[in-house]
C-alpha cells in the first residue's frame, strides 16, 4: 500500500509539473518560416490597404480575406484582385499552420486561426468591412 502511495505521489507531481510548464509557455513566432510569411504579408499590405478602406475587400470571420464589392475598386485593379486576395489567403493559411507546427502542436491550427480571426477584426481600421454573423459589417 505504501508503495502504491509513492507511485501516486510521483504521478501527481508529474501531472502538476506538466500543467505548470504549459500554462506559462509563450507561443514561438520567430521561426524562419513564420518570418518569411510575415514579410510577404507586410509587403502585400500596401496593395491591399486601399481595398480594405474602399470596402472592396473585407475580413472574413475565419481569419482570411475576401472580395466583397468589385465595384468599389478602380477598373484597373479589378483583374488582379482575385490573385491578390488568393495570395494573401495562402500566406494566412500557411501562417496559421506554421505557428501551430512551430510550437509542436499542428492540431492547434484551427484554434490559432480563430484567434487571429478575432484579432484581425479588432485591430481593423474604422470603415473597413468584416464578416459578422449576419453578413458584412462596416466597422
Amino acid at each position: 500500500m505504501q508503495k502504491m502511495m509513492m507511485h501516486l505521489l510521483v504521478l501527481v507531481a508529474m501531472m502538476l509539473s506538466a500543467s505548470g510548464s504549459y500554462a506559462a509557455a509563450d507561443l514561438e513566432v520567430n521561426t524562419p518560416a513564420i518570418s518569411a510569411i510575415k514579410n510577404s504579408m507586410q509587403a502585400r499590405h500596401a496593395q491591399l490597404a486601399p481595398h480594405y478602406a474602399s470596402g472592396a475587400v473585407g475580413l472574413t470571420e475565419d481569419g482570411l480575406i475576401a472580395v466583397r464589392d468589385v465595384n468599389a475598386m478602380p477598373l484597373k485593379d479589378r483583374t488582379g484582385i482575385n490573385a491578390l486576395v488568393g495570395a494573401e489567403n495562402s500566406d494566412r493559411n500557411a501562417l496559421y499552420k506554421e505557428i501551430a507546427a512551430g510550437n509542436g502542436h499542428p492540431e492547434w491550427r484551427g484554434e490559432i486561426q480563430s484567434t487571429f480571426a478575432g484579432r484581425w477584426i479588432d485591430k481593423a481600421h474604422v470603415g473597413w468591412f468584416y464578416q459578422g454573423a449576419g453578413g458584412w459589417v462596416k466597422k
Binding site: Y22, A23, A25, D26, L27, V29, I34, K38, L95, I99, H105, W108, E111, I112, T115, F116, R119, W120, K123
Partner: peptide, 15 residues
C-alpha cells in the same frame, strides 16, 4: 490545453 492568451499575444504581435 491550447494556450489562448499566448495565442492572442502572438496574433497581436504579428498583426
Amino acid at each position: 490545453y491550447f494556450p489562448a492568451a499566448a495565442a492572442e499575444k502572438a496574433a497581436d504581435k504579428i498583426i
